[in-house]
Design a protein around this nucleic acid. Structure first.
Lengths: 108, 108
DNA sequence: AATAATTATCGTAATATTGCAATATAAAAA
DNA sequence: TTTTTATATTGCAATATTACGATAATTATT
C-alpha cells in the first residue's frame, strides 16, 4: 500500500489532516515564520533565507498554497505570497476545541 | 534525496513540524477525536472504531505517542491512551501567535 | 528583439510513509 | 499451565515525499 485511505474519513478530518500535513515540515514552518516577519511577502527572498534550492522552495510554496495556508498574487514578474488567515483560523479553532475538551478531562 | 534536512532549521521549527506532521493524517485525527469523545481512553476500541487493521492503528498510535500528542499507560494487559494536553498547548500557542501577527497585517 | 530576472515544472534519485499479514510479546483468565 | 486477550513488531509491497539539476515559461529591462 502506501496511499492514505482518505475515503474512510470525514471531510473535516481530511481537511484538518491536510492543513496539518502541509505544516509538517520544518522548511514550511520556516517559510511561515519568514512570512510573519516580513508581513507583505517578498517571494524570491525566501530562497535566500532558506538553505534550500529554488525548485525545492517553489515546491514547498506550492504545497502550502494547495493546503490554503498561503496565497500568492502575481505582481509583475514576481509573485507575492502571504499567509491566509482563514486557514490558520480553521486549525486554531480546531485545536482550541481539543484543549477545551481535554482540559476538563481526567486522564490515565 | 528524500530525507528532510532538519539540521538546517531551529529546534522550535522542527518541534512544531514534528507535531503537525503527526497530526497530518486523517486516521490520526480520527484517533484524536475518538479520544476526545471517550475521554479516558479505551485502547482496543480504536481498532473497532477505525476502518484499519490492528497493526496499522498500532503504528498510528506509536507516531502520535512519539510526537507527544498522546500518552499511554499500561493497565493490566491493555494500554490506556489519552491526549497529552501539554503538546496540544504548544501547538495552540504557536498558532495563536500566527493569528495575532497575521490579523493585523495587510496582505497582497 | 535580445537579455535578464523570477518562478514553475519535469525528471529522477533517495528516503519516508502507509497498510497489512504474519508473528511475537505480555498479561489475564481458564 | 494452557488458552485467551490485547498490543507491538517485523517484513514487505505500494505509494508519497523530499531535494535538486535542468529546463521551461513569463514578464521586465535594455
Amino acid at each position: 500500500m502506501g496511499a492514505t485511505k482518505t475515503e474512510h474519513f470525514t471531510d473535516q478530518q481530511n481537511q484538518i489532516a491536510t492543513i496539518a500535513k502541509a505544516l509538517g515540515h520544518p522548511a514550511r514552518i520556516a517559510i511561515i515564520e519568514y512570512l510573519m516577519k516580513v508581513n507583505e511577502c517578498i517571494c524570491g527572498d525566501i530562497v535566500n533565507e532558506l538553505p534550500l534550492a529554488q525548485p525545492t522552495v517553489s515546491q514547498h510554496l506550492k504545497e502550502l498554497k494547495n493546503a490554503g495556508i498561503i496565497k500568492g498574487s502575481i505582481e509583475g514578474n514576481s509573485i507575492c505570497y502571504c499567509i491566509d488567515e482563514k486557514t490558520i483560523d480553521i486549525l486554531n479553532t480546531y485545536f482550541l476545541k481539543i484543549i477545551k475538551t481535554v482540559s476538563k478531562a481526567k486522564c490515565c
